[in-house]
Design a protein around this nucleic acid. Structure first.
Length: 410
DNA sequence: TCTGGGGTCCTAGGACCC
DNA sequence: TCTGGGGTCCTAGGACCC
């Protein structure tokens, strides 16, 4: 029998913003951008949620529901900083920690009773320590499986601790909506409801073979989840076994759809630079390069190409991406979004064997120097020539900080 | 109200190989 | 003539998560 904690920060982005600006406390706050911008809600304070605002909702809709809310831009660096602080607190508490996203983590607390006492006491201790060291509230679920711990932390929100005693899983899960099960989204919920399956208890009562036949591998995993089991799939992995990323991508939605080839290509160049930089950071070389293209009507296409020799160079990424774009753009159709996505790593050492080629070495040196400049002076310090003009244009349009007198929507 | 950005995993068809 | 079976890689798309 094992003991898992799932710890989840409460309204994470909002709470971090409140630390920087305490006047936000208790007010309806929406993180994600201005209400007249293209974009969605990244996070909403509990006061804003009372009006029906929730994450992933278009900003314009959030404004309709709650015009008095304070709309603030997100600050990814702040959230990354606090995520590291959170990880630090957790690591000092227990060695078996795995961050599952920027604001949530699993801990394997099996056999820590002599150190911290029974699970509830340990959780309260951790909860207090988290508040003391980061100033942030969290919720903690405790259970014998990672899945139930995760559902538990959700039920404990906000600012609570919930222990599902081993053996009580069926009673705990049965009354919950199927949507509470991780992996069941909008689409699956609809399909299940159409079959008369609304609660986790309805699922658990079904024959496994029914879900298997109806939904395949996914259905089989769902049958296990409805019984509180980690068996099969993502939950069925060791804590702390996380490896590096499997893909790296950057994308950009224009503030207005565009058909301007110069603007499009400079944006692609900038995205390739951002992806290339992350590749070099992680010491990875990608073999598959993918373009993402979204048109004015939201129709979305991806086009990929795998190259013989993996790369981490902006210039090579850009060559491939530009070719993919030229071959696939419905010329004249207004573009809403562009994305650059890379995957299929091959060992970086393969590159060493080919290092005789001076051109590559020179590029790598130049790019690594540029990376260091960006570390010092920020992302816009260096750019491929092609990226320059578009960069400025986008920045002036989209960085509200540079537009005086637009701090608050109201 | 009009839909971000960064990820993971799964499915499915076709190419190609043995 | 008219048709295997398994494995792997590549590509495209979609659901889902935070």
């Amino acid at each position: 029998m094992r003991t898992y904690f799932h710890l989840d920060m409460d309204a994470f982005f909002v709470s971090v913003e409140e630390l920087y600006d305490p006047s936000l406390k208790g007010k309806p706050v929406v993180v994600g951008g201005r209400p007249n911008e293209r974009g969605v809600v990244s996070a909403a304070s509990y006061a804003a949620r009372k009006f029906g605002v929730h994450s992933a909702m278009p900003l314009r809709m959030a404004y309709k529901l709650c015009p008095q809310a304070i709309f603030v831009d997100g600050h990814p660096e702040r959230y990354r900083d606090y995520s590291h602080k959170i990880y630090g607190v957790l690591q000092s508490f227990s060695p078996l920690v795995e961050m599952a996203s920027i604001d949530e983590a699993y801990l394997d607390m099996t056999g820590t009773e002599r150190l911290y006492g029974p699970p509830l006491r340990a959780a309260h201790l951790l909860h207090e320590r988290m508040k003391a060291e980061t100033g942030l509230n969290c919720s903690i679920g405790i259970a014998a499986s990672r899945l139930v711990a995760k559902i538990g932390s959700d039920q404990a929100k906000p600012n609570g601790v919930l222990w599902v005693i081993p053996g009580e899983e069926p009673a705990f899960l049965a009354p919950l909506d199927v949507r509470k099960v991780p992996g069941v989204g909008k689409v699956a919920e609809k399909q299940l409801n159409a079959l008369g399956i609304r609660k986790v208890g309805d699922l658990a009562r079904l024959d496994e073979s029914f879900l298997d036949q109806r939904f395949g591998k996914w259905g089989l995993a769902l049958a296990g989840k409805s019984r509180g089991l980690d068996a099969g799939g993502w939950f069925d992995t060791e804590i702390g076994a996380a490896e590096g990323p499997k893909s790296i991508s950057h994308e950009h939605t224009f503030s207005e759809d565009t058909t301007d080839l110069a603007q499009i290509e400079s944006t692609l160049a900038r995205l390739c630079e951002m992806v290339g930089r992350r590749l070099r950071e992680h010491r990875l070389h990608a073999r598959t390069i993918q373009l993402k293209l979204r048109y004015w009507d939201f129709s979305t296409f991806t086009r990929a190409h795998s190259i013989a020799r993996a790369t981490d160079l902006d210039t090579e990424l850009f060559e491939e991406i530009r070719e993919l774009f030229r071959r696939n753009w419905k010329t004249g159709a207004a573009v809403r979004l562009l994305g650059v996505h890379v995957s299929s790593w091959s060992e970086g050492d393969e590159q060493l064997n080919l290092m005789g080629e001076e051109k590559h070495q020179k590029w790598r040196q130049a790019l690594e120097a540029a990376d260091r400049l960006r570390d010092k002076f920020g992302e816009s310090a260096v750019s491929l020539a092609a990226g320059l003009r578009g960069n400025f244009r986008e920045r002036t349009h989209e960085n509200p900080a540079s537009l005086p007198g637009k701090k608050k929507p109201s």
